[in-house]
Simulated assay, not measured.
Amino acid sequence: MVHIRRAAQAAAVTAVAELLGVDAAAVSTDAPFADLGLSSTHLARLTACLEDAMGVEVSVAAMYDYPDIDRLVEHLAMR
């Protein structure tokens, strides 16, 4: 389970960094997506990135229900 969380978190951090054009080290995993500067368009792209990386369906609604990387990863790891 820990391995799944780490992989999901790494995928999410990498995807957010790429979407925003920043270094992955600058992406806080406990900051809300909105505070990171992600728009609704970014969130839709992020779901696609995570689906490709993790092989699980990620709805856009999940991005609002679990509004930061840590909470989203926890949700995805429990599936």
Rank of each mutant, 00 (worst) to 15 (best):
S40F: 03
A12W: 02
V22Q: 15
E18S: 07
V13Q: 10
V16E: 06
V13C: 08
L36N: 15
D30T: 12
A24E: 14
L38F: 04
T41C: 01
A31C: 04
A15Q: 10
V16R: 10
V27L: 03
S40H: 03
G21A: 02
G37F: 00
V16P: 13
A17K: 11
L36P: 15
A25P: 13
V13D: 06
A34F: 03
V27T: 02
S40G: 08
A31K: 07
S40V: 00
G21Y: 02
A26N: 12
P32R: 03
V16Y: 05
S39R: 01
A12M: 04
D23S: 13
D23L: 04
D30F: 02
A25S: 15
A34V: 12
A26E: 14
T14A: 15
D30H: 09
A11E: 04
V22Y: 06
V13F: 05
A26M: 10
V27H: 08
T14M: 10
T14I: 03
L19Q: 11
A15M: 07
V27Q: 09
L20V: 04
F33N: 10
S28D: 14
L36W: 07
A25F: 12
S28A: 15
S40L: 01
D35M: 00
A24D: 08
V22G: 09
L20M: 09
T29G: 13
V13L: 08
E18D: 15
A26V: 01
V27F: 02
D23Y: 04
L38K: 06
A31S: 15
A12C: 14
P32I: 00
F33P: 15
G37S: 05
A12R: 05
V22C: 07
A34Q: 09
E18A: 14
T29W: 03
S39F: 01
S40A: 06
A12G: 14
A17Q: 12
G37D: 06
V22M: 11
A34C: 04
V13P: 08
A31E: 14
D30E: 14
A31P: 07
L19A: 03
G21I: 02
L38I: 01
A24Q: 15
V27W: 06
A11V: 01
A12K: 06
P32E: 13
L38Y: 01
A17R: 10
A26W: 03
L20D: 08
A25G: 12
V16H: 13
L38A: 07
D23P: 11
V16C: 13
L38M: 06
T41M: 07
E18F: 03
L38V: 03
G37V: 00
D35L: 00
A25I: 06
A26G: 09
V22E: 14
D23M: 05
S28L: 03
F33M: 05
V16M: 07
A24T: 06
T41P: 10
D30I: 01
V16K: 12
D30R: 12
V22I: 05
D23H: 11
A34I: 02
L36T: 11
A25T: 13
L19Y: 02
